[in-house]
Design a protein around this nucleic acid. Structure first.
Lengths: 210, 210
DNA sequence: CTAATTTAAAATGTATACATTTTTTGTCAA
DNA sequence: TTGACAAAAAATGTATACATTTTAAATTAG
């Protein structure tokens, strides 16, 4: 496997597990020495994580692991609310039962695998949503949604360390599937909206109590 | 100035002016030799333009200047329609007259400078919209919109070579400002929506007649 | 002591060289 | 001719070395 890919996953994982604390500034040299790869590789990965919102610039040298921020979380939810129901509405009419079955498999993995890292859970959560939206056939919309999920997942990893959404989230996912099987698109979009809004509400209030 | 920045603007400009034809595959070596910089610089710039949708991967080596595509243009417009009125609605209430004045200056530059390249016109067009949305105070939303504009501007450069939207576009921009001065937010959003939709309609029909 | 300026240190930008992977080309057997 | 396989060429990945820029420290003038 490419070192770039390895470092990408490793660093992302380390950031989500708070091995690198929010607010810390990571220089190329530091990361190069710590992970035992050349700065070229570090540069590529920094750029990639910057594009996903997992690292930010801050005027000075190095890139910063952005601190958690209730306003940002709120904005991300607003964008999801604006775009995800649209994607679902476009995709739902052409969703096959095969695809619905796939999503169910993902849910099963999520609920039946005990020792998932926040990183892995984030990946599976996106897989679930992605499978539902995929048939909308809008590559840019899907790309935006993936990026939003990536950004949100950083927060979820943080939150999950203190508080658990696993069950409620799973229940809402199931409800979504049930409605989609009945082709109740309006209902599914409503549940999705509620799903996003309520998770965000909890997250924001959690962040504000820090 | 950093070579990276130079090459970024140069290559972007060359792509918009069709110096590199849509569909062509650009390898690192090719660009490195052509522009007289090391491959390291090329890699950085390719990555950046990839993130903006001006280059795409295609399985094989090298990156491709993506062909123009009516579906893609349509999707980009859909996303703009979904997000820009929202940004304007959030920003409009706190728009100062100073900011409105700034936007007017941009419009003046746009209309009174005869020899603007498509690239420069794209930049100014985004400046105008950006100034209007800025006060919404949603960094991620603004970032998304900038990216969408960047992608659309590639199409506009193409279209403008055969057909001119300068006047109609300018008129719509002026109308937008007039409504915002009167704090007619609903009206302004409606004009904005119409502005995006009609420009897209023309663009898509133009693309389909190729 | 403060502020400005110089100097040293550290970080990033860039080029070159080498390693690895991917594509292509060419050969041979069926 | 076709298809599989091997050799070559080409492209990208990665490391190291050097150049330039940026940041921090030290020094000195006021």
């Amino acid at each position: 496997m490419l070192k770039k890919q390895q470092l990408y996953h490793q660093l992302k994982n380390d950031i989500q597990q708070l091995h690198w604390q929010p607010g810390i500034v990571l220089t190329q040299q530091q990361l190069s020495a710590h992970y035992g790869v050349s700065r070229i590789v570090v540069r590529d990965v920094q750029q990639q994580l910057f594009n996903e919102g997992w690292l930010t610039t801050h005027g000075k040298a190095g890139m910063q692991v952005p601190p958690f921020n209730a306003n940002e979380a709120d904005e991300l939810a607003m964008l999801r609310l604006q775009l995800e129901p649209l994607a679902l509405k476009l995709a739902a009419p052409t969703l096959s039962f095969a695809q619905l079955g796939q999503t169910e498999d993902v849910l099963l993995t999520l609920s039946s695998t005990p020792a998932l890292s926040p990183y892995q859970r984030g990946e599976l959560n996106w897989q679930f949503h992605h499978l539902l939206y995929q048939s909308c056939n809008k590559p840019h919309l899907l790309g935006l949604l993936e990026k939003l999920h990536q950004q949100v997942s950083r927060y979820l990893g943080y939150q999950d360390q203190t508080q658990s959404y696993a069950q409620t989230s799973a229940a809402e996912h199931q409800q979504l599937l049930t409605l989609l099987r009945r082709r109740d698109i309006e209902g599914a979009c409503a549940v999705l909206t509620e799903h996003i809004a309520s998770a965000n509400k909890k997250l924001v209030s959690y962040l504000q109590n820090q």
